[in-house]
Simulated scan of single mutants.
Amino acid sequence: MSAGTLVKPAMRGLLGKRLRFHLAIAFTLSLAAAAGFKFAVTEPRKQAYAEFYKNYDAIKEFEAMREAGVFQSVRPKGQ
């Protein structure tokens, strides 16, 4: 080799080699994003719903809305 010549780039199989590399990175990042969403969004949301419905009384809520006149087809008590 003389000082003025360059080494030829390896073109055979380059697409497959780069594709495997980038697919592995994409798969890892997608798993990390899914796990992050699960623990940052869905778990706190499930916890908040569980906390809300732990002491929720639907009948009491209905009675309060009926007394406030929210419903058109339900008369307030006493009428």
Rank of each mutant, 00 (worst) to 15 (best):
I59R: 09
F21A: 14
P76I: 02
F71D: 07
N55E: 02
Y53I: 00
G16N: 01
M65I: 04
T42E: 09
A64I: 05
A64F: 02
F27I: 12
A40I: 09
L29C: 07
R66M: 07
G69Q: 00
S73V: 04
H22Y: 12
L19Y: 01
G36E: 05
G13H: 07
Q47K: 07
R66N: 00
I59N: 10
T5E: 08
V7R: 13
F52K: 08
P9A: 06
A10S: 15
G69E: 01
T42Y: 11
A48K: 00
I59Q: 08
V70W: 11
Y53G: 05
A48L: 03
A58F: 02
E51F: 09
R12T: 06
Y49Q: 03
A32R: 09
A40Q: 00
G78N: 00
V74G: 05
I25D: 14
P76N: 01
K38N: 11
L14E: 14
R66Y: 01
E67K: 06
M1F: 12
F27E: 13
Y49C: 05
F52Q: 05
S73H: 07
R75L: 11
S30W: 05
A24N: 15
L19M: 08
Y56P: 01
V41M: 04
F27S: 07
L14N: 14
A58D: 02
A68C: 02
I25Q: 14
L23M: 06
A35H: 13
V41D: 02
E61I: 08
K38C: 14
N55A: 05
E61Y: 06
G4V: 15
T42H: 08
Y56V: 03
A10C: 04
G36R: 02
M11D: 11
K17W: 13
K77V: 10
G4D: 15
F27D: 12
A10W: 10
Q47D: 03
T28E: 08
F27W: 09
E51T: 15
N55D: 03
L23C: 10
L31H: 02
E51A: 12
K17E: 08
Q79C: 10
S73K: 08
L31S: 13
S73M: 06
K46E: 06
H22T: 12
Y53M: 09
K17I: 07
N55I: 00
M11A: 10
V74I: 03
R12C: 03
T28H: 09
A48R: 00
E43F: 07
A26E: 04
R75K: 14
R18F: 05
M65H: 14
P9E: 01
M1Q: 06
L6M: 08
R66F: 00
R75Y: 11
R18D: 07
K38W: 10
M1A: 12
K46W: 11
A33C: 04
Y49H: 04
E61A: 11
Q72L: 11
K17T: 11
T28F: 10
Y53A: 00
G13V: 05
A24R: 10
Y53E: 01
L6W: 15
A35E: 02
E63G: 01
K17S: 10
R18N: 10
N55K: 10
